[in-house]
């Protein structure tokens, strides 16, 4: 439990550091993304205990779906606001996603080297 609190303090600290950078440098990015990059860099430099940070990160990441859910609720109350644009929205989402999935698959098929079969067992660790 204490490890979780220590980890949560690290996460909050990195968010605050991200927010400071965003405000000071007037960046058009969210504090969370800057904090995430700072955390990755810190872990690479072996700053902060990975066990503590992971203890707080895993439950939070597991809760992400619930944390964004209140934002989704609003979509059922904006029908009038975007009246007349729903066809454009639907075509853009469905057509755009089909097209981008097709492009990504073709791009990756071109760029990715053939999978060495020996690589497979060690992959299971992640």
């Amino acid at each position: 439990m204490i490890a979780l609190l220590r980890g949560f303090l690290w996460l909050t600290g990195f968010w605050l550091a991200g927010e400071s950078l965003v405000v000071l440098l007037d960046l058009p990015i969210s504090a969370g993304v800057v904090g995430m990059l700072l955390l990755t860099i810190a872990l690479l430099l072996r700053i902060g205990r990975l066990e503590d940070i992971a203890a707080a990160s895993q439950p939070l990441i597991g809760l992400l779906a619930m944390l964004i859910m209140p934002g989704v609720v609003g979509v059922f109350f904006v029908a009038d606001e975007f009246a007349g644009q729903w066809l454009a929205v639907a075509v853009a989402l469905v057509g755009g996603t089909l097209a981008s999935v097709l492009t990504t698959l073709l791009l990756m098929r071109r760029c990715m080297p053939a999978a060495p079969r020996t690589e497979t067992p060690q992959e299971t660790s992640s």
């Binding site: 996460l11 990195f14 995430m36 895993q58």
Partner: peptide, 16 residues
């Protein structure tokens, strides 16, 4: 939703 801030930062762990 305030927790989304630290939760976004937490995505750095799987990235690492």
């Amino acid at each position: 939703m305030l927790l989304l801030g630290p939760a976004t930062v937490a995505l750095g762990v799987p990235l690492y």
